[in-house]
Design a binder for these strands. Structure first.
Lengths: 212, 212
DNA sequence: TAGATTGTTAATCGATTAACAATC
DNA sequence: TAGATTGTTAATCGATTAACAATC
């Protein structure tokens, strides 16, 4: 991929849309669509064609005037931009319903996540096999991180333990944290954090229903 | 609550922040905090105090000059704005790992959701008890909606069935749809849809890790 | 009263859209 | 070539922030 030198700061609004581009391009590639114009793709996605072209221009020039975009090529570009080609070693901390849902999520391994171990602090769960792995005590988390190359830690614990776990993950050398606890956690300059509060969606739905 | 007449169109950026306000105010109310200034609250939340006051001003005047805000009062206001005081009858469609995680989510009943029935289309699952209810075949969904007052339908099916299920829910008279399928679904002028693609968070994390 | 802090106005900043020259 | 569609510039629109008069 050619990263264009003059245009390095990608607005966060653009980054937020990248997963959507990825999803649509993957679906189209799988359907065997060879080629598409920004107009047609943007209509499918309910955005303007200006926005689509503007967004893509932060990363390079991928289309051809008078022709449009080659779908499989643009899909590969999007995978590359997002860093999906890589395999990421992952640990899950917190094996309640939410944790189980996350590691069983079907897009998960498709996107290059490889679950290396799962941890919980409930002795009742120790040894139970989830995703082909026995649940380990959280007390062994740090040691595990020291002995294995782990890229991503997923937190699916209650709110009050989330930041503590995050700090163990950071000390243990992960590069990214995906946090599902209702309490946002903090990373640092080397560790990226993505806080996903899916409960917020319910409240937005309530709001919409009340004010519709 | 006093809705201020001149200022009716609430920007979507503001609506997106309401769940965050709700979370922080609930946590503070539970901790017994009586009073807080926009400065202190905004610092806790990593936003500016201007933004906090500006956001609240769309809904009314809830503070006092020289004093700040009464936390429990502001919490109740936020619940009211979001429509949390109500009980919402709910059905879940799709009882895989994701569906199970959603209905077992602890903030769920706290926020007034009452699960009335759960549906799936896998005969193997029929009758299995989840959340105290036996799983019913999806073929009975429409009938159930006709015979019961259901406010919200939650979709946790694979992408390809999502829109079909949404249409049954709409015909059946729900007022809101919370969709977790990777395919966004469409509502109409009477039915609000909230699409939650939690997989997108993983891709944003990948992006951050690659470009950090 | 004096100090603190609100709600709001105006200025700034960022994101979206329209328009079009370049060119396949 | 003629038609289509890109990438980019400039204009518009919306969101955030700074500043302050009002007032508890």
């Amino acid at each position: 991929m050619i990263l264009r030198p003059g245009k390095v700061i990608v607005p966060s609004a653009v980054i937020r849309r990248l997963p959507m581009y990825y999803r649509y391009l993957r679906a189209m590639t799988e359907k065997g669509v060879e080629r598409i114009s920004s107009k047609a793709l943007s209509e499918e996605m309910n955005i303007t064609s200006s926005q689509l072209r503007q967004d893509l221009s932060y990363f390079g020039e991928f289309g051809q005037q008078g022709y449009g975009y080659k779908v499989p090529e643009l899909y590969r570009v999007m995978c590359d931009i997002l860093g999906i080609e890589k395999q990421y070693g992952t640990v899950l901390v917190g094996v309640g319903n939410l944790g189980r849902a996350i590691i069983n999520y079907d897009g998960f391994s498709k996107r290059g996540l490889e679950v290396m171990a799962v941890f919980d602090n409930k002795p009742l769960l120790y040894g139970e096999v989830v995703c082909g792995m026995p649940i380990k005590p959280v007390s062994q988390l740090y040691e595990f991180l020291c002995n294995n190359m782990v890229d991503i830690g997923i937190i699916a614990t209650p709110a009050k333990s989330a930041q503590d776990i995050a700090e163990v993950l950071i000390k243990g050398g992960v590069k990214g944290i995906w946090n599902f606890a209702p309490q946002p956690v903090l990373g640092n300059e080397h560790v990226v954090v993505e806080n996903t509060h899916f409960g917020d969606g319910l409240l937005k739905l309530f709001y919409g229903m009340k004010h519709n």
